[in-house]
Structure formats: structure tokens, C-alpha cells
Design a protein around this nucleic acid. Sequence first.
DNA 1: GCCAACGTTGGC
DNA 2: GCCAACGTTGGC
Length: 149
Amino acid sequence: MRFWLFKSEPSTWSFEQQVAEGAKGTEWTGVRNYGARNFMREMRVGDRGFFYHSNEGKAVVGIVAVSAPAHPDSTAPGTAWECVDIAAVCAVPKPVTLEAIKAEPALGEMVLVNNSRLSVQPVTEAEFTRICEMGGLDPETARTAPVPA
DNA sequence: GCCAACGTTGGC
DNA sequence: GCCAACGTTGGC
């Protein structure tokens, strides 16, 4: 299992909206960056990720799971762009802010810190674990809890 | 609202 | 294939 980070402006698509969509999940459409697309191609069903609110909140607010592998993005012309489907697993009890992430030495190598504009990013297992801890969420639960219906 | 960083586009 | 111009993102 690998770990990822999905970034969204809450005014466009929030974690609360993601939760409301349930286990089937939703297409993570709109990514128009080749690096981000390539990461989505590497994703497998069951991989876990963080849901990050950019601009407003600027914090990791939830855990998601990949519910469908990469497929053409129906909102893009042609088939050059792809997306995966993701489903909400659970909220992070204490959202982990960008400020807190930057202040944590163990997270200094995160893509979020070093390339803040990439909207889909890989996260290492160590980073995943540390952020769960900071957010008051048992990392084992974050990795293994089933997606609620 | 500003601006820096970055990715993409398009002219050469 | 290079690079300047431009648009967008996202933190501040």
C-alpha cells in the first residue's frame, strides 16, 4: 500500500462533500499536471491518502482511500488526462495545519512543503504515520479502517 | 490582494 | 530544442 495527498480548495470541493458521497467515491477530476497525473497512474485501489484543504484551512482534514484506478478524466477533452476515484474513510480529529507540518522536522521533506503547488503528491509511510499521530488519529486505524458506506 | 514559484505554451 | 511569456496556484 502506498500513501498520497490530495489537495482541494474547500470552496470548490470539501472533505465534508467527499464524506457525503459515501463508499463508492467520486472521480478526482480536473488535474491538469503531468506529474500529478503520473502519480495517479501509480495508485492502486486501497491506497490511502490525506485530504488537504488548500487556501482556506490549509490543513490535512481527512483520510481517503483510492476506490478506482486511473481512468480517463471525463471532464477533459480527449484521453490525455486521467483521474482516480477516491472515497472518504474518516476525518482527522485534530486537523494538521500546514504551519504544524512546517514546524515538524520529521516532515521537512514533504512535497507539500517543498512543492506546494503540486495538487496530487506521494507521501511516505513515515510521513503518513506522523501526521496521523499529530492529528489524533491512530495510524493503524487510518491504514486499515474500512470505507464507511 | 499581492506576489513568488512553477508548469505550460508557443515563437524562433 | 530552447527560452521568454503567460497563466495558475496557493501561501502570506
